[in-house]
Design a protein around this nucleic acid. Structure first.
Lengths: 272, 272
DNA sequence: GGGTATTTGTCCGTATGTATT
DNA sequence: AAATACATACGGACAAATACC
């Protein structure tokens, strides 16, 4: 009896969930019913439910009840692709490159990627952008931002940064709204002779900010994290030519990295 | 007055933290003091602090107080390396391959990797192992498990799986305790002629289980997630020869993926 | 649309337990 | 041993969101 009562109650409910007695989407008994069932006060029941909530096992809906969470069929993105392909990896501004990529879920369905028109701004490079793009902090950069969806559900938020000098040197369409035909990679090669020869993805996980939580409909308490992937693309002189920051919720995204000779992807059903 | 009081109090404290008025590691005023300061009940103050806790901004210590969390200097691991190098990527059983890898933090220090002796078991392949290793579910596999540390702090938990047939065919040392000289990749090449020509990393984020939370000293409420990286290694016939599952806490780990021609790593100080 | 019952959310006060100093 | 500070648990009251008639 070392454990507090609310944890024991949570454990009891957890077993019911993981054994399948309470299936995904199913409603739990109300707090008042559980209060009688376990002989505890309503506040203690609420502590148990709050615990399960932070564990991501249940969610509460005011006026309705408490429900076992549905597991989301995850999106799978391959981070390694042809370094010279327009757009680089699949995650690299596929929208701007006119690619209607398909993402394959573990269950094997093909999915449809859509994206908003790019929202373009001229910004001062903050510390992170300046360091990865190797420009002076505070210098002007072009920012192209998109919201991206798979089958209509919010998938990722992406922002690409380019040095302002690119526009001066002849790549004026970078600051025009609307997609760039054949993508920015080809456009920069054609106009400035900048060939993308490789890129580096820097993968971190952090808590979502308010904008991200809103766009992805994540719980506001920061329980669900987001991947933040910084992709730095390099030209033939090993100089950074683009920084793309993409944010994905961790609860619905997985990534694949292939190295060396690897057979085509097996479609694997994840039954964790 | 749209927001509940505990959220307003949390917001007030959050601003003090993010503005720097309350520095990392610094102690907040006690619940009783805050109760008078904000004119709320102690339970409401506790709700505000609990909210900040799930946001990962503060931590509470019984008998001591509430403190602003320290940001951890993260470990950075490169997932793309020579596919034929013993051990594959840096994350691939470097311990078993006798590599004393160094990890470079954003701040640029070199760090020392240590690891426990492998703990070896014969197990039945569960669904996940069977599918990635492409063996029948329930067939025997060799499991080699290690705890890995950087500078003495827990870094990752790693388990490698090999088909049991490898031992029958002559790779008997796989089931012996202790490190294998020159690593398992070279050992399997020497004994069975299995050359590792590539590998695939499958990156997911999930909540830690009890064992993991204990080893990494993570809060038990599952607030901090863990990376689970499944590395499947392939031999020259494109057959899976090894599955390595590695678990890293997301609060102290970052990953790098290089594609194409990429300059040597810039040491970047992350001042997010 | 309105009203009512149901269910979770917020807030209070109090008492006692447990960990740390 | 004592003081301090957070943790658990109780009970009660009202608010807010939702569903249903």
């Amino acid at each position: 009896m070392a454990n507090p009562m609310y944890r024991q109650i949570a454990e009891s409910l957890r077993e019911q969930i993981e054994s399948g007695a309470l299936g995904p989407g199913q409603q739990l008994r109300t707090e008042l019913e559980l209060r009688e069932q376990y002989g505890a006060s309503r506040n203690t029941i609420r502590d148990a439910i709050k615990w399960l909530t932070t564990l991501g096992l249940v969610e509460t809906k005011p006026g309705q009840g408490t429900f076992v969470v549905q597991k989301i069929d995850p999106f799978v993105t391959t981070l390694t692709a042809d370094p010279k392909r327009p757009g680089g990896a699949e995650i690299a501004v596929p929208g701007e490159d006119g690619y209607g990529e398909v993402d394959r879920s573990p269950a094997g369905q093909k999915r449809k990627l859509t994206y908003s028109d790019p929202q373009i701004e001229i910004q001062k490079a903050d510390g992170k952008v300046a360091e990865h793009l190797r420009v002076a902090e505070g210098s002007s950069v072009i920012s192209r931002h998109q919201r991206r969806y798979i089958d209509g559900t919010p998938w990722s938020l992406q922002t690409s940064f380019y040095p302002m000098g690119f526009v001066v040197r002849g790549a004026g369409r970078l600051i025009e709204a609307g997609d760039i035909r054949d993508g920015t990679v080809k456009y920069l090669a054609d106009t400035l002779g900048l060939r993308q020869v490789g890129y580096r993805n820097w993968i971190t996980v952090r808590s979502p900010d308010m904008t991200e939580a809103g766009f992805f409909s994540l719980p506001q308490d920061g329980r669900v994290g987001v991947f933040e992937i910084l992709e730095t693309a390099f030209d033939q002189t090993a100089t950074p030519m683009r920084l793309t920051v993409t944010v994905f919720p961790t609860d619905r995204n997985q990534f694949i990295v292939n190295v060396g000779e690897v057979p085509a992807e097996q479609l694997i059903t994840d039954n964790t």
